[in-house]
Write a protein that binds this DNA or RNA. Structure first.
Length: 800
RNA sequence: GCCUCAGUGGCGGAAUUGGUAGACGCACAGGACUUAAAAUCCUGCGUGAGUUAAAUCACGUGCCGGUUCAAGUCCGGCCUGAGGCACCA
């Protein structure tokens, strides 16, 4: 129909040459900041899913610019990561080379789509000019006592000799070689993220994230309020601390459980008479994987500790202590008080091992199951007389604190952030270890600590980073005593560079600061941040934590990074399954651009369905959109040169302007496209159309399919380039047509419709409704009980 | 198990938030143009009854009940699917 390849290349070139989409940091205009998650430039190239979200925000960004805003819509590369490292190991080339290639491919693919990114602000997390500031920010964490080293278990593949993330070792199988994964203890750098748990919860109120994203974050943080209670150990001057949310059930405690890793076991080895049995249980627990241990369907296991008893602080009763892996080491105190009458897990354990079950709340039938409901307290000393949970808990909390046997306590599921990776291709952690002075930060003026240029990246046998093998990089001088010292060879996780990239976009070439105050003050929060649901918790929480911390240091003037967070649905294969190479259902956007053009692809991906929902790919759907653009193209032959709207379509055109404007703002792209199709259908029915009709249609379509609309606008001499002219505005007075279809219902069923004037009064509507033949059939000879009139809509008659 | 969302023709999906269910597109069928095909254009298209054709009628938004003149939309109880959390005390 028309040569889309030529037209698209022409306009892309012009936009680039004229720097049309570059945002200014020095503008009187109101700002708007759109952000899409920057991609990992994988060897597989761009996915049609990328096209969906980039185009979606592009359409908003283009519209917003035409509405007079200074829009920032940047793009960059999250380019550290394991695939590049593995590729480098295999081919003995530096990962930066592979990354460079992939970025080139991605970039040209994205450019062929005509996305209005401001490429002058392009960044890559792997660029030393960028990661210099990532390291700089790490030093800020360290300086402020927010970074520390601790022994942590990691997933270790003995075959690949590498530490794995949880994702890479799912099912306890190495994702790379398929072999079994072990646990290993290693010293790791940690960031004190748990300190920010409450802030991360409260901060959500300052955002407009989708509800499901907020919920996911709240779950992840997992705040629970309760009490820490001290149980004395019989005959020893020590206490066993437990965390409980149900201190109201303290009188129902019949045993205690500690986790297999609890320090009491080694501490009281001499006291415990069955220590061999306990140690055996410990060893078995250590062998189990995380999944095995947390499998709720499995039977409870455990061993009773002989020779050691705890004392219930509220009634002085002696209580046995057990070891079981259903108690987690890393939550609460690693020990619990068990109340089998009112807790399902404790109940299952007590039943299995024949431990007493004492009810303290009325209700349920404890011969069958634990009663977790509310009720009146019984057998409960000071709580007797309390009639509900809330009252009992509050009374017990006071009692515990008054008698100094416990205190109010809040616990979180959220843990500190393990910030080390034993990898080559990451930001080196800028720390130096000296035998005399211990850990010291690399001085700011020595940043960045860059990755060495070597040809081998094999991991070491002992699980250290490949960097540990590169001795002339590792050996350095101590910044404090100037003696011999070694660099930290761990690198940062992938999540580091992506925790602040949106800030760098504001001021990407600044070599004095990670971002200037001026740029921060101008651009402020990201207005719209789009990304997948897979990043709703981790990435988003890391970035928020990072940002909150920088805010606390006075480095950023506002505490939350993102205002709106939106999520796109996936584009599935034509068979409705997730696209994957192995299933052979991958659609390559390049092929589609080549055959149908970027404009058609963009239009289709926006038209495909609700933006937040998954949608299956359909090439016929894409063809339909191409056909739509072809019809738009052909419509030019009907131009009559007039600069007014065609009178008969004035209302529809104004309605369409409103519809498209609102829909693009609310990410309802599919209905925006459909309303343009409706307008086209109406215009196409006419013998001739005016230039103004046509220009408005092209203008409204421009954010969706920018190339062909600009081309037609120029070809037909309709005026200034669309992307440089103001967005169409509608006339409020021309949104309502002069007539409407009045619907008449009798006893709730539609019995007639007539076209009447919009200014028909309610009385007239009633009268007219009764004149319709079919309506008469239903009301004649009957008594009218009720009449409801909805102005400009319908009349509803009830007869008896 | 808990939390969040969703369920509408053959398909993707609309429906101004209680007011004509099925917009728009795809697929399909029939027709026009053509030697023919493609492209394009026109017509039809929820199911059933009805009619030469209409008109018209009944049913219909996962299932069962409720509120209302009026329910895809609100309420109660289920079923199914997707996602998040999960032995978190």
């Amino acid at each position: 129909m028309y040569n889309h390849e030529k037209i698209e290349a022409k306009w892309q070139k012009r936009w680039e040459e004229e720097k049309v989409f570059e945002a200014s940091n020095d503008s009187d205009k109101e700002k708007f900041y759109y952000l899409v998650e920057f991609p990992y430039p994988s060897g597989a190239g761009l996915h049609v899913g990328h096209v969906r979200s980039y185009t979606a925000l592009d359409a908003m960004a283009r519209k917003k610019r035409m509405q007079g805003y200074n829009v920032l819509y940047p793009m960059g590369w999250d380019a550290f990561g394991l695939p590049a490292e593995q590729y480098a190991i295999k081919n003995h080339i530096h990962p930066s080379k592979a990354v460079e290639e992939n970025i080139k491919t991605f970039k040209s693919q994205i450019k062929s789509l005509g996305i209005s990114f401001d490429w002058s602000r392009e960044i890559a997390t792997t660029d030393p000019e960028y990661y210099k500031w990532t390291q700089w920010q790490f030093l800020k964490f360290y300086e402020n006592d927010m970074a520390y080293k601790a022994k942590k278990e990691i997933n270790w593949c003995p075959n690949c000799k590498i530490g794995l993330s949880n994702e890479e070792s799912e099912g306890n199988v190495c994702e790379r070689c398929g072999g079994p994964v072990e646990k290993r203890e290693k010293e790791q750098w940690m960031l004190k993220m748990s300190k920010y748990a409450d802030r991360l919860l409260e901060g959500l109120d300052k955002t407009e994230f989708l509800e499901k994203i907020k919920v996911a974050q709240v779950n992840w943080i997992g705040k629970s309020e309760g009490a820490e209670v001290d149980f004395k150990i019989k005959g020893v001057d020590d206490i066993l601390k437990v965390f409980t949310t149900r201190c109201d059930t303290l009188y129902g405690v019949t045993f205690m459980v500690i986790s297999p890793e609890h320090k009491f076991i080694s501490k009281y080895e001499n006291l415990i008479t069955n220590i061999d049995e306990i140690k055996k249980y410990q060893r078995e627990a250590a062998k189990k994987t995380e999944i095995e241990r947390t499998d709720m369907t499995k039977e409870k296991t455990g061993v009773k500790i002989e020779g050691m008893m705890a004392i219930n602080p509220v009634n002085g009763k002696e209580i046995e202590i057990w070891v079981s892996d259903y108690v987690l080491t890393n939550y609460g105190t690693g020990a619990i008080m068990a109340v089998p009458a009112h807790d399902e897990r404790d109940y299952a354990f007590a039943k299995k091992f024949g431990i007493d079950i004492i009810p303290v709340i009325e209700g349920g039938d404890i011969s069958k199951e634990a009663y977790t409901g509310d009720g009146k307290m019984i057998n409960s000393g000071v709580l007797n007389g309390c009639t509900n949970k809330k009252e009992s808990i509050s009374k017990m909390l006071d009692y515990l604190e008054e008698n100094k046997i416990g205190k109010r306590k809040v616990n979180y599921r959220l843990q500190d952030w393990v910030f080390s990776r034993q990898r080559f291709w990451g930001e080196p952690i800028p720390m130096i270890y000296c035998d005399k002075c211990g850990w010291n930060p690399v001085p700011y003026e020595d940043l960045p600590v860059t990755l060495p240029e070597v040809a081998s990246y094999e991991p070491t046998d002992d699980g250290e980073s490949p960097l540990a093998n590169i001795t002339n990089w590792v050996n350095t001088t101590c910044p404090k005593c100037k003696g011999i010292a070694k660099r930290e060879t761990d690198t940062m996780p992938n999540w580091a560079g992506s925790s602040w990239y949106y800030l760098r976009y504001m001021d990407p070439h600044n070599d004095k600061e990670f971002v200037s105050k001026k740029a921060l003050n101008y651009w402020n929060m990201v207005d719209y941040y789009n990304g997948g649901m897979e990043h709703a918790t981790r990435h988003l929480l890391y970035a928020r934590f990072w940002h909150n911390f920088l805010y606390d240091q006075g480095l950023i003037p506002y505490s939350e990074p993102f205002n709106k967070r939106v999520a796109h649905g996936m584009i599935l294969g034509p068979n409705g399954e997730k696209m994957s190479k192995s299933k052979g259902n991958v659609i390559n956007p390049d092929d589609m651009v080549k055959e149908y053009g970027a404009d058609a692809l963009r239009c289709y991906e926006l038209f495909i369905g609700d933006y937040s929902m998954d949608a299956a790919w359909s090439e016929n759907g894409l063809k339909g959109c191409k056909k739509f653009l072809d019809r738009i193209y052909r419509l030019k032959d009907k131009l009559n040169g007039s600069n007014e709207y065609t009178k008969s379509l004035e209302i529809l055109i104004n309605q369409t302007i409103k519809k498209v404007t609102d829909d693009l703002e609310n990410m309802k792209y599919n209905t925006a496209v459909s309303s343009l199709m409706i307008l086209l259908n109406e215009l196409d029915k006419l013998e001739e159309i005016t230039n103004k009709d046509y220009r408005t249609l092209l203008h409204l379509l421009n954010p969706i399919s920018p190339h062909i609309t600009e081309e037609l606008n120029e070809m037909c001499n309709l005026g200034e380039e669309l992307c440089k002219s103001s967005w169409p505005i509608y006339d409020e007075n021309k949104l309502i047509s002069e007539t409407f279809t009045m619907v008449v219902q009798v006893n709730g069923k539609v019995r007639g419709k007539i076209e009447v004037s919009t200014d028909t009064t309610e009385e007239e509507m009633k009268k007219l409704s009764k004149e319709i033949d079919n309506v008469k059939n239903y009301i004649e000879g009957k008594e009218i009980v009720k009449e409801v009139v909805v102005p400009k809509k319908l009349v509803s008659i009830v007869v008896k």
